[in-house]
């Protein structure tokens, strides 16, 4: 067997095994870590297909950023695993049925057209071929409009994230430097004019107070 084929089967085996562990792991944190492993292996398979930009972007974006987010979500949710797992065996047949139907449908629709051996071009990359450059050439000329739309979608995501999760806290002790600098004396200090004469304490009263002590 060729070295590439060995690598492919290695990556594919670890990918399938770790993907299975994602759904069977008891601890959600472990499931997230297995998902990271699955992404690494998928990236290895893409690399074998000469899709170097996609492979590195997968590691950079998914492993580096999205999985961190997953981890935060797992940490933020207070899930009781036992209660989630209750009724697993009751729902299993129905779930399997629905899943099988979906897979069969997708295979029927997409399979022959996009994934048959005839449909896939034999991409033997010649020397000097750069996947990144091909991607760039298409993305920034033919697909310029979808590319700009992508930035609008990212903008919507930023605004949605800020609107959904950001709230002003009333109990913070942060400094507002602009406000502090703009303060005038009259805002903070009040000069009260008082009568300068006070009632002198009588000697008698002072003595009784001493006695009480």
């Amino acid at each position: 067997m060729e070295f590439k084929t060995v690598l492919f089967y290695l990556f594919a085996a670890v990918l399938v095994a770790s993907a299975l562990r994602v759904v069977t792991a008891r601890n959600p944190v472990h499931a997230v870590l297995f998902l990271v492993l699955a992404f690494f292996n998928a990236s290895g398979i893409w690399m074998l297909l000469d899709a170097e930009f996609l492979a590195i972007a997968l590691v950079m974006v998914y492993v580096g950023a999205v999985m961190v987010l997953f981890m935060f979500v797992v940490m933020m949710l207070d899930i009781n695993i036992e209660s989630v797992r209750r009724g697993f065996w009751n729902y299993l047949p129905l779930g399997l049925l629905v899943g099988t139907i979906l897979v069969v449908e997708m295979a029927a629709v997409l399979g022959q057209r996009y994934f048959s051996l005839d449909a896939l071009p034999n991409t033997a990359a010649e020397a000097g071929y750069s996947n990144t450059k091909e991607l760039g050439r298409l993305l920034y000329t033919d697909y310029a409009y979808p590319f700009e739309l992508a930035s609008v979608i990212l903008l919507v995501a930023i605004i949605a994230a800020v609107v959904l999760t950001h709230r002003e806290r009333k109990d913070t002790k942060a400094q507002k430097i602009g406000e502090q600098l703009a303060t005038r004396r009259d805002d903070r200090l009040r000069i009260v004019s008082m009568a300068s004469v006070k009632e002198a304490p009588s000697v008698e009263k002072a003595v009784t107070e001493e006695g009480n002590k």
Binding site: L69, S151, L154
Partner: peptide, 13 residues
């Protein structure tokens, strides 16, 4: 979470 999601969006950029 907010910091992480803003990071992801600029990472994609």
């Amino acid at each position: 979470y907010l910091i992480a999601i803003i990071f992801i969006l600029f990472d994609l950029e």
